[in-house]
């Protein structure tokens, strides 16, 4: 464990807790893409299949349980909670996210480190996580503005992957044989997807005005 990875995990934890807290407190999920939340639930479900078979550390298992629990809770709130579900604008959140999953699955079947059931699904979860934010970013473009909690959610989510890139660089230089190209490229693509959002987020913060994403 290094400081970059710990910072990344804490930022990631903060992003899901900020979102869960927002939805639980104000009983609204306006501006949040259910499609992205569903994709994240699938990412965690396929990423942590080994939670029962391989034990790395208490921390590792605890965090996996938190991520699984929070992502499925967010989906549950948005789909089934009597008050929250009414605030979900389904006619704006129309990204065909199943079309994201198929290419990720095909790519995982083609490019992976080992051709085993767990490894292919694990690789699928990496590719899917890289693109899972797209429905949310499309929704933001459509709704034109962003309330600060959703903005914080995306900002933290982007930051977590940015910290992970620093972690991979650190581990590459400090641990022999630590080479995972698939993870690194998927993580880099994911962070680049956030780059333009970060740019507009920073502009809005600098000019102290409401964040307006260009159409």
């Amino acid at each position: 464990m290094n400081i970059f990875r710990l910072a990344g995990d804490m930022t990631h934890l903060a992003s899901v807790l900020v979102l869960l807290l927002k939805i639980h407190t104000i009983k609204s999920c306006a501006g949040v893409s259910l499609k992205t939340q569903e994709l994240y639930a699938i990412v965690f479900a396929t990423r942590y299949l080994d939670i029962l078979t391989s034990f790395v550390s208490i921390y590792n298992t605890l965090m996996k349980l938190i991520f699984l629990g929070s992502s499925f809770s967010i989906v549950w709130y948005m789909k089934y909670h009597k008050t929250v579900r009414r605030t979900y604008d389904r006619d704006q959140d129309t990204f065909r996210h199943w079309f994201l999953m198929l290419p990720c699955l095909l790519l995982a079947l083609l490019i992976h480190e080992k051709f085993t059931f767990f490894e292919v699904l694990w690789t699928f979860s990496l590719y899917l996580e890289a693109v899972a934010i797209l429905p949310q970013l499309v929704l933001l473009q459509r709704t034109r503005n962003i309330d600060n909690l959703t903005g914080q959610y995306i900002f933290l989510l982007g930051g977590y992957r940015g910290f992970y890139i620093l972690n991979w660089i650190y581990r590459y230089f400090t641990e022999p044989h630590y080479v995972h190209w698939i993870t690194w490229i998927a993580g880099l693509v994911q962070t680049l997807l956030y780059a333009d959002f970060f740019y507009y987020y920073f502009l809005s913060w600098k000019n102290n005005k409401k964040l307006q994403l260009p159409a």
């Binding site: 990423r47 790395v56 550390s57 590792n60 965090m63 991520f67 972690n167 641990e175 044989h177 993870t183």
Partner: peptide
Amino acid sequence: PDKSYEKDEL
């Protein structure tokens, strides 16, 4: 198993 393989990241 060889350490490099263990999935120790979230």
